[in-house]
Design a binder for these strands. Structure first.
Length: 114
DNA sequence: GTGGTGACGTATA
DNA sequence: GTATACGCCACCA
């Protein structure tokens, strides 16, 4: 099967993010590790940068860094869009940071073992 | 084919 | 505990 998806890596990241349940969030490193590319944690975020142009849409707003900071909020067009979406999902966000990050944290490996 | 960059993470000072 | 430096690896020009 002709691998038309050269974004094998990207697609995988999208697949994980799309499995994130509503009201939950995860970290780039966790996703990267779930993919087996823990070393390319940066690539996870890089992939998300293109998440706004792929289909189906990827809830990138549910993906934050290790500190729970909405580092990529700027990728949503508005610096408050990401926080707004999270708040809409039930995730409290203050100062561009996820509140109780560890409580709403979702483990991507959980989807793999589904 | 090479170089530069990056929505991170970890290590060290 | 805070601040700074480096590394990782895949994508883009």
């Amino acid at each position: 099967m002709v691998a038309m998806k050269s974004d094998n890596f990207f697609e995988r990241v999208y697949g994980i993010v799309r499995q994130i349940p509503e009201g939950c969030v995860t970290s780039y490193g966790a996703i990267a590790r779930a993919l087996g590319t823990a070393g390319s944690s940066r690539m996870v975020g890089y992939a998300m940068r293109g998440a706004g142009g792929v289909y189906p849409p990827v809830p990138a707003h549910r993906v934050v860094n290790r500190a729970g900071l909405l580092t990529g909020k700027r990728a949503f067009g508005s610096p408050t869009m990401m926080a707004q979406l999270l708040a809409n999902e039930g995730v409290a966000v203050v100062d561009d940071k996820v509140v109780d990050f560890e409580q709403v944290f979702w483990d991507p490996q959980d989807a793999l073992g589904d």
